[in-house]
């Protein structure tokens, strides 16, 4: 008896768990948002989102100077002196899945446009679908995500000075190209049950919009590779 229990304890110490996420920034932001809402119940959902994000990115004032904003569809890019300290996580962390594309579409609640490299599995939540593409010649997976902005799903990126931000055209749509230096992404879905997720990424990003949908490609891609993939999204 004692031996088996001892062996089980020893086994427990050798178990492999997934990397532990840092929950502090997300919990902080959500609590701050709720308090805000309670005080001013008439504040619109979008305003609450913006407030919560401001809190999520609260870092000591001297370091948090916001240098510039870029807006595109459901994405806000904010240049900051110093990135908030968050751990690096899988870009699909927090989403459900993997699931079939059909399940993802139903969960997301809007019709999907897909790249020509579409895998069979996707990750989703209401208003957002993400999938990991394998692009030949590119190291690591490439994230392809699409979501409906409309003030409900919001993605925010914080970047440092070294990151290049360049406006681009994807077909007839406006886009942004972000290159170099890690950045921090926060997702927030404010449909009554706000969620904040923060993650740190190192890849380059192409973001663009079409209609009410915002698209995001992210990974170790060159600008040309990203634009090429984006052109075939239909």
């Amino acid at each position: 008896m004692a031996e088996l229990e001892r062996d089980l304890r020893a086994l427990g110490a050798l178990l492999e768990y997934p990397p532990e996420p840092d929950l502090v920034p997300a919990v902080r932001a959500r609590l701050a948002q709720r308090e805000r809402r309670w005080r001013r119940p008439l504040v619109l959902a979008l305003a609450a989102v913006v407030l919560a994000l401001a809190v999520a990115f609260a870092v000591p004032p001297a370091r948090s100077a916001i240098l510039r904003f870029f807006h595109l569809g459901g994405i806000t890019v904010e240049r900051v002196e110093k990135l908030p300290p968050v751990s690096r996580r899988s870009p699909v962390a927090g989403l459900r899945g993997p699931m079939s594309l059909e399940q993802a579409r139903r969960l997301a609640g809007f019709p999907l446009l897909l790249p020509h490299l579409t895998p069979r599995r996707a990750y989703a939540e209401e208003g957002i679908v993400a999938m990991l593409l394998h692009v030949e010649g590119v190291e690591g997976p490439v994230l392809f995500a699409e979501f409906r902005g409309e003030g409900l799903g919001v993605v925010k990126k914080a970047i440092e000075r070294q990151t290049i931000v360049e406006p681009v055209r994807v077909g007839n749509s406006d886009g942004l190209w972000l290159q170099g230096a890690p950045h921090v992404v926060t997702y927030l879905d404010a449909r009554g049950r706000a969620r904040v997720r923060t993650t740190r990424l190192a890849g380059n990003v192409l973001a663009w919009t079409r209609g009410a949908t915002t698209f995001r490609l992210e990974g170790a891609l060159t600008r040309e590779q990203a634009l090429h993939i984006a052109r075939f999204v239909r």
């Binding site: 997934p18 996420p21 929950l23 997300a26 919990v27 959500r30 609590l31 709720r34 899988s90 699909v92 962390a93 927090g94 989403l95 459900r96 899945g97 990750y123 969620r195």
Partner: peptide
């Protein structure tokens, strides 16, 4: 991992309330 993170985050928010 994804659901675990979600559950833990939600739990901390609910516990606070």
């Amino acid at each position: 991992a994804a659901d675990a993170e979600d559950a833990a985050q939600e739990a901390f928010v609910k516990a606070y309330r």
